[in-house]
């Protein structure tokens, strides 16, 4: 298991390198010059040229990429062309906002979504189920930023009890988090409901009932534990979405996170900022996916046995044959 984790962590390095290489190639083949964008249209060609030289933009692509990787390995993410501040410092300040919004909204959506899904599934064919399904359908169909504006309008303008932008105290977190969480909660609720309904029909649930277990135990111990497995997977992909969503929510609510930073970096072709943001967000996402995979293995023994080392696998394969052999012995 530990070997697996280490392997996965090591795998992240080439993946992230590939991503930054793609980004660099993409930047290279599309028109746009950060020097010209910084200095403006009035700047002379010589000035622009000398700035390009200073930033090392005139070197061939492999050289630039090699230098980039070399610097990253030394913990140097470069300096923003626009703000002249080190990208690492800036990201270090902004990153917690993005992460916190993403995590808080994810947690909130899990706490709303799973109970709602269970409620709908256990009250199938009743009004509760219909209401829950319909609400969640509406929620997944709403643009998050628009829902955020609705929240701002109602809580910020009409009721005037929550701040409409910026984060000064804990109240500032509420609207960005809620605006993101709603859609995700709906996705989780839908997934939970359909999984649970699927699992309830399985033979082993009838077996559990036939053992004389109480309905609650059947539902929460046997059915829920099985139904939750695909939900865990959804939560993983939702985290990816919530990172992206957090970027937009930050722009809507003027939160000083990575969103505005990345976006202005992108529109000014501020290469170090773009590379830094993409790397840190993708890296974080990969770590989360790994955590989700491990969580998976924790719940599902079938997956756990896949993760065991190769030798183990061979033994397992032989295991079935051994079963049959034991079968014969047992019969004697």
């Amino acid at each position: 298991m530990i070997r697996y984790v280490v392997k996965r962590l090591l795998m992240m390095i080439p993946i992230l390198l590939c991503i930054s290489f793609f980004v660099m190639v993409l930047i290279d083949i599309t028109p746009g010059d950060p020097a010209r964008l910084l200095l403006g249209n009035t700047a002379t060609e010589e000035k622009i040229e000398s700035l390009r030289e200073e930033w090392g933009l005139n070197d061939p692509l492999p050289v630039r990429y090699g230098r980039f990787v070399w610097n990253i390995l030394h913990g140097d993410f470069g300096t923003s062309y626009q703000t002249k501040r080190p990208v690492a410092t800036e990201m270090f300040q902004r990153f917690p906002y993005t992460l916190l919004i993403a995590v808080l909204s994810l947690v909130l959506s899990v706490f709303i979504g799973i109970p709602l899904g269970v409620l709908a599934a256990t009250h199938q064919y009743t009004i509760w189920d219909n209401v829950a399904i319909f609400l969640s359908l509406i929620a997944v169909s709403m643009p998050g930023f628009w829902f955020a504006l609705l929240l701002i309008r109602y809580f910020g303008v009409v009721l005037a009890i929550l701040p409409t932008s910026g984060i000064e105290d804990w109240k500032g977190w509420i609207l960005p988090t809620v605006s993101l969480a709603l859609g995700y909660a709906a996705i989780i609720a839908r997934q939970t409901r359909s999984n649970l309904l699927e699992v309830i029909r399985q033979d082993y649930i009838t077996t559990a009932r036939a053992k004389g277990l109480a309905e609650g135990r059947v539902l929460y111990l046997h059915a829920m534990k099985n139904a939750i497995i695909p939900v865990v997977m959804i939560v993983g992909s939702i985290f990816g979405a919530s990172l992206g969503g957090a970027l937009i929510a930050e722009i809507v609510f003027s939160v000083p996170g990575l969103g505005q930073y990345t976006l202005s970096g992108l529109s000014n072709r501020d290469y170090p900022v773009i590379q830094g943001s993409v790397l840190i967000l993708s890296g974080l996402y990969s770590v989360i996916i790994l955590v989700i995979d491990l969580l998976f293995a924790l719940i599902d023994p079938r997956i756990r046995s896949q993760y065991s080392s190769k030798r183990e696998k061979i033994r397992k394969k032989g295991g079935v044959a051994a079963n049959e052999a034991e079968e014969g012995v047992a019969a004697d």
Binding site: L16, I19, I27, G32, L243, L266, I274
Partner: peptide, 22 residues
């Protein structure tokens, strides 16, 4: 695809759309 999916989808969209030009 592994590499592809290591980037959150919305981040990928934003990056692509911005670099290609709005």
């Amino acid at each position: 695809l592994d590499v592809y999916e290591s980037m959150p989808m919305m981040l990928l969209c934003i990056t692509l759309a911005a670099i290609l030009g709005p």
